[in-house]
Computed example of a mutant assay.
Amino acid sequence: MTDQHKDALRKAASFCAYQERTQQEVRERLADWGVWGDDAEAVIADLIEQNYLNEERFAKTFAGGKFRVKNWGKRKIKQHLQQRGITGYNLEQAMKEIEPADYRQTLRTLLDKKRQSLRDDSPLIIKQKLVRFALSRGYESDLIWSVLGEEGGQEDE
């Protein structure tokens, strides 16, 4: 193992220990440090072997955090994970971090809060604004309509 490899591995391990990272993020950081190609791949392999780098763990942490802290929907979480190079099995595992009952309740709470901030006499316009809001947060349209339908026309009263 060369001194450059040891140095890159030490810096990359520190980078990964600070917070969960993807291989893509580590590869980009290694390039910033002047480590490319086979050298970079060797460092990444060492990080995986030493469990500093684990994309399944990253995906689960990311998905759970964005859902619990930022109340993001699954569509938005998936999109952001895919932008970070997370696909397939790791993406599926990340989505399993979100309990369906919690997911539905979080959407319900978000919609209730948003409804309180809306000032309009038309129930139709309020519903449109709520749908647009929930879609922008990454929730699925069928779930949004289902949750809005549970309220059984309360807006009309």
Rank of each mutant, 00 (worst) to 15 (best):
K6L: 14
K11C: 04
A13Q: 15
F15H: 11
C16A: 00
A17S: 09
Q23H: 00
Q24T: 04
E28R: 15
A31V: 02
W33M: 09
W33D: 09
A40G: 11
A40N: 07
E41Q: 13
A42E: 10
A45M: 06
A45L: 11
E49M: 04
Y52C: 03
N54M: 00
F58I: 04
F58Y: 14
G65L: 00
R68V: 08
V69C: 05
G73T: 12
R75S: 11
I77M: 01
K78Q: 15
Q79I: 02
Q83F: 05
R84Y: 00
G85C: 04
T87P: 02
E92F: 03
Q93H: 05
Q93K: 11
K96M: 09
P100Q: 09
Y103R: 14
T106A: 14
L107I: 05
D112A: 15
K114W: 02
R115L: 12
Q116Y: 01
Q116D: 14
Q116A: 12
D120N: 14
D120S: 08
D121H: 12
P123K: 13
L124V: 10
I126S: 06
K127M: 11
K127I: 09
K129M: 14
R132L: 07
R132I: 07
F133L: 02
F133E: 06
F133I: 08
A134E: 00
A134M: 12
S141N: 13
W145G: 08
E151Y: 13
E151L: 11
G153H: 06
E155N: 13
E157M: 08
